[in-house]
Deep mutational scan, measured.
Amino acid sequence: MDVFMKGLSKAKEGVVAAAEKTKQGVAEAAGKTKEGVLYVGSKTKEGVVHGVATVAEKTKEQVTNVGGAVVTGVTAVAQKTVEGAGSIAAATGFVKKDQLGKNEEGAPQEGILEDMPVDPDNEAYEMPSEEGYQDYEPEA
């Protein structure tokens, strides 16, 4: 019985440690998101679009440190934060509304985080759909 109880105690310690790591990862992701939003706020009209992409990228980098179902929630929060940063930029006159959601080359930025393969159960990952990809044929 002692062996059984000791095993359960060790398992509990492992769960607590994993929860603490997840909590730490979420806190880091939130900190990076805040950094990115402050970065966007300090940019001029020309830099705002690039700044919004930076927020998304920093958040995406930190999301990889967070495991399990938390990833889905962090990704949703990050996307809403990026959308909010863009709205703030438009409201303050840093950028025109028609410039939001495009990178410096004018290509749409939507789907940055949505296409990231995420499995809350950590069982399997699927690649994003290939609808947006084109076949590449090298020139002879």
Rank of each mutant, 00 (worst) to 15 (best):
D2A: 15
F4A: 02
M5L: 00
K6E: 07
K6A: 09
G7L: 01
G7M: 15
G7S: 14
L8A: 07
S9E: 13
K10I: 14
K12T: 02
E13K: 02
E13D: 08
E13G: 05
V15R: 01
V15T: 02
A17H: 10
A19G: 07
E20C: 10
K21I: 13
T22I: 12
K23N: 01
Q24Y: 15
Q24A: 01
G25D: 13
V26L: 07
V26R: 00
A27K: 15
A27G: 06
E28C: 11
A29S: 07
A29Q: 10
A29M: 11
A30M: 03
A30N: 02
G31S: 15
K32P: 00
T33F: 00
K34W: 14
V37P: 00
V37Y: 06
Y39E: 02
Y39G: 07
V40P: 00
V40N: 01
V40R: 02
G41I: 11
G41F: 10
K45F: 14
K45A: 03
E46S: 06
G47F: 15
G47H: 05
V49H: 02
H50M: 08
G51M: 06
G51E: 03
V52W: 04
A53E: 08
A53H: 06
T54V: 01
T54G: 07
V55D: 00
T59R: 04
E61M: 04
Q62V: 09
Q62C: 12
V63W: 09
V63D: 00
T64G: 05
N65L: 11
G67F: 03
G67Q: 12
G67W: 10
G68P: 08
A69I: 10
V70D: 01
V70L: 11
V71W: 14
G73P: 03
G73T: 05
G73M: 06
V74G: 01
T75F: 05
T75V: 13
A76H: 14
V77G: 07
V82N: 03
G84S: 13
G86H: 13
G86I: 01
S87Y: 11
S87P: 01
S87W: 12
I88A: 04
I88D: 03
I88Q: 01
A90Q: 11
A90H: 14
A90E: 05
A91C: 07
F94I: 00
V95C: 03
K96F: 07
K97Y: 12
K97M: 08
K97D: 05
D98F: 04
D98M: 15
D98H: 14
Q99M: 03
E104F: 14
E105P: 03
G106R: 08
E110T: 12
I112Y: 04
L113M: 05
L113E: 14
L113N: 01
E114A: 02
E114T: 15
D119A: 12
D119M: 13
D121A: 10
N122G: 09
N122H: 08
A124Q: 11
A124F: 13
Y125L: 06
Y125G: 14
Y125W: 06
E126Y: 06
E126K: 05
M127V: 15
P128C: 03
S129A: 15
E131Y: 15
E131L: 03
G132H: 13
Y133E: 06
Q134R: 04
Q134K: 13
D135L: 06
D135P: 06
D135W: 02
Y136I: 06
E137V: 05
P138S: 12
P138T: 04
E139Q: 09
A140W: 14
